[in-house]
């Protein structure tokens, strides 16, 4: 009896995703094309830094995209602790996975940019260190989460961890204002005194930057998170069905 009840809630194997998700996915794919066009063709070459400066149009928006995704984790965590509804925990998990991928893009593009501009792949600068801590913190979220077997304990722990972990994102965002001895340039407001690799935010830069910010900060994270939530729901449903089958076998 339990099996048939669960089976009825498990989507059939070939079920199509909702129309809105398909539309969003198409928009996302087109947006990535637009992002590449703006980055590689529309934006002028930075005269002092050369073509490598174009990575900025992905580097900064991907950080804010991660911020958005990790923000969803905070929202999911708070709501789960309030309501105990698993869909909020699923949102939190999707936020971490997508945010982590975007944070890694942020770190990798920053490191590749730094090689010709700072003459090093990595330096233990305040912002770089805080960004690395942020990535490791969220990677640890996934590791800890997979290590807890009891679903309720896992979700409670993950919710609290996800809420607390946002401090590493905020720290990364504001650290160049707190620690003035940094070579990382700032785009929002004046760069720190020791910043290396700064550039002027001209109209051309702003026109290329604003759509990239929208694409990487909202469209890409939302589409990926939506697919991840859908996948998690499916995994959960199959898992429930598996448990039901096993319990039926045991009885």
């Amino acid at each position: 009896m339990a099996v048939s009840a669960t089976a009825s809630t498990t989507p059939a194997s070939g079920e199509r995703p909702p129309r809105s998700l398909i539309v969003l996915t198409v928009i996302t794919a087109l947006s990535v094309g637009v992002s590449l066009y703006l980055t590689l063709i529309y934006a002028n070459t930075d005269l002092e830094q050369g073509d490598v400066q174009r990575l900025f149009y992905i580097h900064m928006p991907s950080f804010f995209g991660a911020f958005f995704a990790f923000g969803a984790t905070v929202l999911g965590g708070i709501q789960y602790l309030r309501t105990r509804q698993t869909r909020w925990d699923t949102l939190a998990l999707a936020g971490v996975e997508v945010g982590l991928a975007l944070s890694i893009i942020n770190l990798v593009t920053g490191s590749i940019w730094a090689r010709p501009i700072w003459n090093t792949w990595w330096t233990w600068d305040a912002r770089l260190t805080s960004a690395a801590i942020m990535v490791l913190t969220y990677a640890a979220y996934l590791m800890f989460r997979s290590g807890i077997e009891n679903p309720d304990t896992r979700r409670r722990f993950a919710s609290v961890y996800g809420i607390v972990a946002i401090t590493t994102v905020i720290l990364t965002l504001v650290i160049i204002r707190i620690v003035p001895d940094t070579i990382h340039p700032a785009v929002i407001g004046p760069s720190p005194q020791n910043a290396e690799g700064t550039f002027e935010a001209t109209t051309n830069v702003a026109i290329a930057l604003i759509p990239n910010m929208i694409i990487w900060t909202t469209i890409i994270p939302i589409a990926l998170m939506w697919w991840r939530i859908r996948l998690e729901n499916r995994l959960e449903a199959i898992n429930r069905r598996k448990i039901a089958l096993l319990s039926e076998d045991n009885t």
């Binding site: 980055t39 050369g50 073509d51 490598v52 990575l55």
Partner: peptide, 11 residues
Amino acid sequence: PDNADFMWAGI
């Protein structure tokens, strides 16, 4: 500077 290779690596 000619550093297009780094740009492509990042993309």
